[in-house]
């Protein structure tokens, strides 16, 4: 009896594997893309980038394998080695640690496989030299600072249009900030640029509190906002700035529980965010255009694998500043235009 159960279990576990092998043998002349996502736990990467990479690759007739780097650069390094020994035609890599760009480029160069980095870029100071070290590496992404700049511009426009935002009438913005992972280029850029928009517009700022969360999580937004709303500076808060949607979802829940409605802005434009905007609970978010980033990544990868000019036959433009990048623009999403994104 026990042996039968054990046998059945083993069969159940092996069957899907057999399916995988069978699948791997079709279409020998299709371009094979070896890709990763830095972490499947990242809501945005998992909800937007991954499905589009898969569907668009299929649409273009390419084969793509996407692995989860589990938030660890060491795991990604091993996965790249596996892809290289497996003989993929092109690599599409989402760095875990942007500072490790050189290591990945060196691996691709040694194996002479073209490489498209996406969504996470080498640090600005070394970017051009790193990208110049291999002729077959390109980058697809956004300009990290831009999401913060657009978020900031939305907030400044609303601040100027709605005098009631300035609760204490001192002409300065008293804000709290829900920040993402410290050291993450997007978190740092958004935190800096969103506030800079105010100072650039000649409006004074005062940070009442800032709490960062390595996981950018809903729970963080909920717990920290609830604590702030009971603090001595609760009545002074005029603006809630969130580095991403998830933390804003938590903060909105906390505000509802406390019966408070403060102006709140985030980044990502996930579907739940659009609903919050439609219900008047969120004042603005910024679309990180993952669909077009994923499409550009696939287009460049396929061209590179076929030895063509990477942007040939596409609408993408490479930058001319030495970063060898296709930059997909961010879009501000407000109560006025959110319907266009649903």
């Amino acid at each position: 009896m026990k042996k039968t159960i054990l046998f059945a279990l083993i069969i159940m576990m092996v069957m899907p594997l057999a399916g995988l092998f069978a699948e791997g043998q079709k279409d020998s002349d299709a371009v094979v893309i070896g890709a990763n996502i830095y972490s499947f736990q990242d809501g945005f990467m998992n909800a937007v980038m991954k499905p589009t990479l898969e569907s668009y690759a299929a649409e273009r007739g390419a084969e793509i394998q996407i692995v989860d780097s589990e938030g660890q650069q060491a795991i990604l390094n091993n996965q790249v080695d596996i892809f290289i020994t497996k003989g993929v035609d092109v690599l599409a890599i989402n760095l875990v640690d942007p500072a490790s760009a050189q290591a990945i480029i060196d691996k691709a160069k040694k194996a002479d496989i073209p490489l498209v980095l996406f969504n996470k870029e080498a640090p600005t100071e070394v970017r051009n030299s790193v990208m110049a070290s291999y002729d077959k590496v390109w980058y697809v992404g956004t300009d990290s600072a831009e999401s913060g700049i657009i978020q900031g511009q939305m907030m400044v426009a609303d601040w100027k249009a709605r005098p009631e935002y300035d609760k204490n009438g001192d002409g300065k913005v008293q804000y709290v900030m829900l920040k993402g992972e410290p050291g993450h280029p997007d978190a740092e850029a958004r935190t800096r640029e969103s506030v800079k928009a105010f100072t650039d517009a000649g409006i004074g700022v005062e940070q009442l509190a800032l709490e960062a969360d390595p996981n950018w999580s809903v729970q963080h937004g909920a717990d920290k906002m609830a604590a702030w709303l009971t603090s001595s500076f609760a009545k002074d808060i005029e603006l809630v700035i969130c580095n991403n949607d998830n933390m804003a979802f938590g903060a909105i829940t906390a505000m509802k529980a406390a019966g408070v409605r403060l102006p709140i802005y985030s980044v990502d434009a996930l579907e739940q965010a659009l609903t919050h905007i439609s219900e008047g609970e969120l004042d603005g978010t910024v679309l990180n255009d993952g669909v077009n980033q994923a499409k550009a990544t696939i287009d460049l990868a396929i061209n590179a694998a076929m030895g063509k000019d990477v942007v040939e036959g596409t609408s993408w433009k490479l930058t001319s500043d030495g970063s060898k990048a296709v930059r997909v623009a961010y879009v501000g999403v407000t109560p006025a235009n959110y319907m266009d994104f649903q």
């Binding site: 990242d42 809501g43 998992n46 999580s217 809903v218 729970q219 937004g221 909920a222 829940t253």
Partner: peptide, 12 residues
Amino acid sequence: RIGSANNGTGFG
């Protein structure tokens, strides 16, 4: 309680 759930909820 937190207002949204995803596959990362509960991490840690």
